[in-house]
């Protein structure tokens, strides 16, 4: 799994989640909700925001309590924390974004299985102080959100004329295009710096 970017500056920590270490495009984590919910921009954004909230809250709490987590029960402890935040976000969405909840509600509980969150808590927040952990959560959460929103936009635009774009295969194609684009830019960058 990812090496903790803990030696970098705050800026690098934040940016790694958005680009070099992007959960959706580089690590290819959390693809299940990515493909299921990215059918429209609004749904993609909403799940992105929910994930962002969970990853930030989890990173913050794990970082603050990292000295009390007994190494032998670290995984169950992290899963408990994540489950608590996911349940809370689920409730809050249901209370304040009820219309949207009808569309994406099914996928909010599934955030708990998004390994981006466990991987950030385990690889980064449990070894770093609060501020870098928060930035790491913010970066990776935003990185995930941006991919969701980009996929949602593409699929919503194409879906009007091209039915396949809004069906599950369309999600795979759109994501493949996005990853190819990112790799292309990345290669150009390393080729001529």
């Amino acid at each position: 799994m990812t090496v903790p970017a803990s030696t970098g500056s705050h800026r690098e920590i934040f940016l790694s989640g958005i680009w070099s270490n992007s959960p959706g495009m580089a690590q290819l984590l959390g693809l299940c909700p990515l493909l299921a919910v990215s059918r429209t921009l609004v749904a993609g954004l909403a799940l992105g925001i929910a994930t962002l909230l969970v990853v930030c809250a989890t990173n913050a709490l794990v970082s603050l309590t990292r000295h009390w987590i007994d190494a032998r029960v670290r995984l169950p402890a992290l899963v408990l924390i994540i489950a608590a935040f996911v349940t809370s976000v689920d409730l809050l969405f249901k209370a304040w974004w009820f219309e949207l909840y009808g569309e994406i509600g099914l996928f909010i509980p599934l955030i708990v299985t998004n390994c981006v969150i466990l991987s950030r808590a385990e690889a980064f927040a449990s070894r770093n102080p609060l501020l870098p952990s928060l930035l790491d959560g913010l970066g990776h959460g935003l990185g995930f959100l941006l991919v969701l929103a980009a996929l949602g936009t593409v699929r919503e635009l194409l879906g009007n004329g091209l039915l396949v774009a809004s069906l599950p295969p369309g999600g795979f194609f759109a994501l493949a295009g996005l990853i190819a684009l990112r790799n292309f830019i990345q290669h150009k960058r390393t080729a001529d710096p």
Partner: peptide, 18 residues
């Protein structure tokens, strides 16, 4: 066990508040 119980209590508190 105590560590895990502590986190279980914290998780319960978070969900309860929400």
């Amino acid at each position: 066990v105590a560590s895990l119980a502590g986190f279980a209590a914290a998780a319960g508190l978070v969900v309860g508040l929400a």
